[in-house]
Computed example of a mutant assay.
Amino acid sequence: MMGIAATSVFELANAHVGETVYDIHFLSEHGGQVKSSLGMSVETRALPRTPFDTLIVSGLLEPSPSGRKLVGYLRKALPVTRRIASVCTGAFILGEAGLLDGRRVTTHWFHARTLQLQVPQAKVEEDRIFIIDGSVWTSAGMSAGIDLALGMVEKDLGMDVSRSVAQKLVVYHRRAGGQTQHSALLEMDAKSDRIQTALDYARQNLRAALTVEELAEAAHLSPRQFSRAFRAETGQSPAKAVEHLRLEAARVMIEQSRHPIEVVAAETGFADRERMRRAFLRAFGQPPQVLRRNARVMTGP
C-alpha cells in the first residue's frame, strides 16, 4: 500500500493549483480489482494503448517475476513517455523490461544487491533516496516514493507548490535524492538510556572535541565503564561512532546546502577540510565535492 501513497502528492498538487494538472489512473495488466498487500482491493483499468506522460511502477514486499504483458508494455512505453519511475521494488519490474540497462538506479536497501545481480547492466546505488537518470526515475523503499513524487511536482510546477504539498502531507521538504537511506544513530542501536544519551549529546555537539571523558560524563559513567559499555552495545569504539555521526551530518550539509567545504568541516567537528576529505574517501569512496556534484545532478538545480 505504501507503494501507491505517492499518488497523494499529485492529488494535493491539483488541489493547490485549483485545476487537474495530474489526471491519475491506476493500471494493471488486465484491469479490475487488484488486491493489495493489506488485503484491500484497488480498482484498476487495463493497460491502455494510448501513452501517458508519467508512469510510476509500484513493487511488492518481495520481488517476483512480472507478467509478460506488463513487461512488454513498459518496454514499448519508454520512447513515448516523458518519464517512467519505480517505487521501492518496482525497480525489479523496470529491470525486467530492460529500462535500467546502463543507468544509475536505486531501490530499497534490503533488495539493492539482489537487483544488481539480476540487472548487471545497471549501476545500483543502494544508499540513495531517489535517482533521476534521463527519463527513468527510481526511488528507495516505502516512503521514498513520496520524495520522488515531490521531486516530480517541483520540476513540473515549482518549489513553492512542492513545498506546500509537503506541508499538507506533514513530511520533510524535501529529502534530496542523494540523501542516505540510513542513519548512523539507527545503525548503532544503543540498548541503554545512558549510551543513547551519550550518542544524542554527541550529535548535538559535533563541533566539540567529544573525547571519551566528555561522553562518559554525559552518560554519568567513568571513562573505563563507558568505553566498555559503548563497545558492547554498539559494536564499535566511541571514536569510530563519533566519526560516523560527523560523516552523516557533513554529508547532509554537503548534499543539501551551499556552504563552503571549510564551513561544513568546522560545523561537523572535523579539524579541517583535508581531514574531512580523507574521512569521506574512507567511508564513501568519494571526496565531498563529488558527492555535492552528484546530488545536484540527481535532484536538479
Rank of each mutant, 00 (worst) to 15 (best):
G3V: 12
A6G: 12
E11D: 10
D23R: 15
F26G: 03
K35D: 08
S37Q: 07
S37L: 08
R45W: 03
T50E: 15
F52R: 12
G59R: 07
R68V: 00
L74P: 10
S86N: 04
S86P: 09
V87Q: 04
V105H: 01
T106F: 12
T114V: 08
L115H: 02
L115D: 01
L117V: 04
A122N: 01
K123A: 10
I131M: 07
I131T: 04
V136I: 15
W137T: 01
A144M: 03
G145Y: 06
I146S: 03
L148Y: 12
G151C: 02
M159H: 05
D160K: 13
D160A: 06
S162I: 01
R163I: 00
V170Y: 07
V171R: 09
E187A: 13
R194G: 00
I195F: 11
V212S: 13
L215N: 13
A218W: 12
P223S: 13
R224Y: 08
S227M: 06
E243G: 03
E248H: 12
A249Y: 09
I254V: 15
E255D: 05
I261F: 04
E267L: 15
G269S: 06
G269Q: 06
R277F: 00
F280G: 07
R282D: 06
P287K: 08
Q289H: 06
R292W: 04
R296A: 04
